[in-house]
Amino acid sequence: MRKSDLDIIDAPLPYVDLLGLRATSDIDLIVIHCTELPDLVTAREYGERIHYPQSGTGNSGHFYIDRDGQISRWVPEDRIAHHVRGLNAHSIGIELVNTGRFPHWLDSTHQGMDEAYTPVQIEALIALVADLQERIPSIKQIAGHEDLDTEEVEASDDASRQVRRKRDPGPMFPWTRVLAGSPLIRLIA
């Protein structure tokens, strides 16, 4: 998929106007996530949930890429989405639909992430990243959620064990392919 073929469906979250504004020139980082949910419909349900009652907003990325390569924009780039601790103000979150560890995210016996990303999904991601770089030249870095949020938490099945809070996009994510030919630098905490 070339940049000129990029088709983005705008599907703003109901609370999008409550998210903080920012200058796009402040954005220097793209963070890759996976939804860790079975499908885009379930991801949307999670994205619409209010997690921050004071602001009336929830957790979401800016863009979602479904398994068929369809790209949806849930939060405009000039708004601050809640997708990665401490770095939201200067980053863009891109979510890839993938089951990840669903539905036992923190179970110590269910930490494998073995669903491969589809070829069209990765092509769409590469095209989106290139498009963002062209439109927002201040973007210089890229990272996986797991690169930035390395906290371990108590396992849901065994309080004596620790598991990674975030493991996305996970071991099946093709970093070499995504970074090939890109000037972006991978940021690892």
Rank of each mutant, 00 (worst) to 15 (best):
E146V: 07
G58L: 11
T118F: 11
H90A: 06
A159M: 00
L128N: 07
T57D: 08
A11S: 14
H110K: 15
T35W: 12
W105V: 13
Y52N: 09
I142K: 02
L18Y: 09
P12N: 02
T42C: 09
F173A: 11
R73G: 05
L96T: 05
D149T: 02
I8P: 14
G170K: 10
Q133K: 13
W175A: 10
K3Q: 10
G100D: 06
M1Q: 11
L37V: 15
E95S: 11
A180W: 01
I71E: 08
I139C: 02
R85I: 00
P183D: 10
M172K: 11
E146K: 03
D17P: 00
E152I: 00
D39N: 10
G100S: 09
E115Y: 14
H51L: 15
S55F: 11
M1C: 08
G20D: 15
A189V: 01
A130D: 05
R49E: 15
T99D: 12
Q121H: 02
L19G: 03
D157P: 05
D157M: 01
I142N: 01
V75M: 03
H83M: 05
D68N: 15
H51M: 14
A43T: 14
L184F: 05
R186P: 07
I32G: 13
L21P: 00
I8N: 12
D28C: 02
E134V: 00
I136C: 04
E45N: 12
A143H: 15
